[in-house]
Structures are given as structure tokens and as C-alpha cells.
Amino acid sequence: MPDIELKKIKNYALRDLNVKVPNGELLVILGPNGSGKTTLLNVIAGLTDYEGTVLFDGSPVDGVPTNERRIGYLFQNLALFPHLDVASNVGYSIRLKRKKTGKIAREVDELLELMKIEHIRHTYPKNLSGGEKQRVALARVFASSPEVLLLDEPFNSLDIGMCRCLREEIRQIQRELGVTTIFVTHDLTDAKEMGDRFVILNSGKVREVSSKETLSNGGDENRSHGFQDCPHCTVECYCKMKDTSGKDD
């Protein structure tokens, strides 16, 4: 699995952005709405124009088309194919590799079992619940055997129980496969549960890079701003808090 490095990335939403994600790490990108989180993922996936360089294992991939970047991208709205049933959605990338029908079916079965969605294999996306859609989208992403996993606020539409459950599952699979992962969210709870390291993004710039300890404990300064005690704390609170503490300094 590759290291990812972004050097001086600049476009309509990002401003001279530099980020490095070591091999196998799960990096969380935190930031309020409009901070450039999704654009950052699109840059890595080659889905949007940019200036600067994206390196996978030290090699630039700027000219490499999206379909050859070996990316697994879980979109915010999941983007399931509405005209394909669950099994066909999951098997989409495997079919593109022109594998034999029997092999495709076996791989799809394994993934459906892994994500506990065998019972809905012939169901179309329009008839799935939010949680089921999420699982199908994840299974579809893992089916493509990605070397880099990009997760764009995947738990947005889920209830707390489902969210916790999926967080644990994704984290477990990510660790098992050792996939270099970038997880975008504006929810601090998701971030703290999932991440190895954290990048706070605001207005297209990296404001801070934190470890789990600094983000979770936050020091006396963070505590004094109620960051730890806020039950539904989002990164907007965090950024606001940082702004205030900056002014205090």
C-alpha cells in the first residue's frame, strides 16, 4: 500500500496544501463545511483539476487517470448504481477486470457475507435502508481491492448505533488490509474513534496536525473551551475554539 503525499496543491478550494499520509495509516481530515475536505479527496482521486503534485510512494500520479489510480472512494451520497442490484453493484469492479463468471460470483459472495448483506443481494438501491446502502457501498469499494481508501463523511445519514457499528467494522477491515486511508468528516466523535492522526482543514489550508492524544485530551486550553464536554461536538466548535484561543494568545 502506498504512502500518499500532496505537495503544494492549489485549486478553487485548496491553497498550497501539503499533506503526507504514511503507508497503512488512517488519517482523518477534519474541517467545517466548505473547508475543502471533499476537494482534497477528489484531488487524490484525480477527479478534479489542481496545481501541485500528488505522489503515491514518491511517484507523481498527476497524469494518471482516475480509473488507474487504484483508489477506493466512498462518496458522501454513496453513489450506488441505481440500475444495478446489490450483487451487481458490489461486483462491478470485479467484472471490469474480465474475471470468469464463477470467480466473480465467489468474490461477490465473500464480500456480501463480510458486510452481512447476503439477504439483499437481489435488491435494488432504491429499496435499501440507509445502513444497507452504506454497507453495499463499502462492499463495492473493497471489491476493487483499493490501495488507497478515501472515505467522505460516510456516516452522515446514519443513526448513532449504526454509525458506531460501521465505524468499528471499517476500522477493523482497514487494519486487516493495511490500506492507506483518508477519512473526511466534520464530526469529532467519528474522528476520534477512527483516526491515527488528524489534519484540521479550514478555508483550504491545513490549520493543525494532531495526534490522537492531542486531539482527544486537548490539554487544559481545550478543556477550558468545553471541547471535551460537548456531547455533539463538531469540528465547527473546534475551529471556533481554536480561533478564540488564538486571539487570546
Binding site: N67, I71, F75, A79, F81, L96, R140, S144
Partner: peptide, 27 residues
């Protein structure tokens, strides 16, 4: 056709021609 669905197909390894035949035209 939803642009995200097209992007999803690309990230899953579909070339432009495959995106057209497997996603855009059916939709």
C-alpha cells in the same frame, strides 16, 4: 446522470468507454 455515479464508476476502475456503456447509457 448523477455526476457522482460517473465518478464512482471511474474510481472503481472503469475507463471512459466502460463508464458510457455500463453506467451512462443504461441510466
Amino acid at each position: 446522470v448523477d455526476g457522482n455515479v460517473i465518478k464512482a464508476a471511474k474510481t472503481l476502475g472503469a475507463s471512459d468507454g466502460e463508464v458510457l456503456t455500463t453506467v451512462i447509457l443504461p441510466l
